[in-house]
């Protein structure tokens, strides 16, 4: 019962940043805000679809696999946009191309609607890449020192939420996937509980990121 409540709460928590995003829709001219808006909408669509399919007892793992790919592409676009260092830009771009390429090696998880498995390659690479991008971005923030107040800075809230979500889920994902190969349902449920809980945290940080959006990109955004 508890699992169900947390899972549903996680699915619907994304509505919070979506509402704020709707309220801030006038600020969506800036590329940074657009990318974050795409990211929020992507998760909103994923959660709505997964909730409906869950209620109808339809397999929905392939939805998660595709959503992961699109979210990964969006995140790499975001950090490509934010980075000032060209090597970091290259890492964000090449890393994402490699991750997407690798995900098609396990094409069954993407094209078989009845799949029950995660894509074996994408989430590992995505998690590592996102964590690396966020660390590089924090390094740039400390190098450039052009943001007077981090707590009122959209990319900082986004990065903090993403770091907590991906660093928290990557370990449990790897552990569940490689130690038990998704065979122990109890352990898989534990993973989903952690994922759902961290997604609530991430959505809350996304809400803050959307709340602090500025009408246009400032120099300090880069």
């Amino acid at each position: 019962m508890m699992e169900k409540i947390v899972a549903v709460a996680a699915d619907f928590w994304i509505i919070l940043p979506s509402i704020i995003l709707f309220q801030r829709r006038a600020y969506l001219q800036s590329p940074l805000n657009k990318i974050i808006a795409i990211y929020v909408l992507l998760f909103l669509i994923r959660n709505i679809l997964s909730y409906i399919t869950m209620e109808l007892n339809i397999y929905n793992m392939y939805i998660y696999n595709w959503a992961n790919i699109f979210s990964g592409i969006t995140i790499s676009m975001l950090y490509y946009h934010l980075f000032t260092n060209k090597y970091f830009k290259i890492i964000a771009l090449v890393g994402m191309i490699a991750a997407v390429g690798a995900s098609f090696l396990d094409y069954e998880t993407l094209f078989n609607v009845n799949t029950t498995n995660f894509n074996r390659f994408f989430y590992n690479i995505l998690g590592g890449l996102v964590i690396a991008c966020i660390l590089f971005y924090f390094y740039e923030l400390l190098q450039n020192l052009n943001v007077p107040k981090l707590t009122e800075f959209t990319p900082f809230w986004f990065s903090t939420g993403a770091l907590l979500y991906y660093s928290g889920t990557v370990f449990s994902y790897l552990y569940v996937n490689y130690t038990f190969n998704n065979s122990d349902l109890g352990i898989v449920r534990s993973y989903w509980m952690i994922d759902a809980f961290l997604f609530i945290v991430f959505s809350s940080f996304l809400s803050m990121a959307v709340w602090y959006m500025k009408p246009r990109d400032l120099k300090s955004d880069f």
């Binding site: 370990f171 552990y175 130690t179 109890g186 352990i187 534990s190 993973y191």
Partner: peptide, 8 residues
């Protein structure tokens, strides 16, 4: 395993 996941 559950505690391993939580601790990790």
């Amino acid at each position: 395993p559950f505690y391993t996941i939580v601790i990790g």
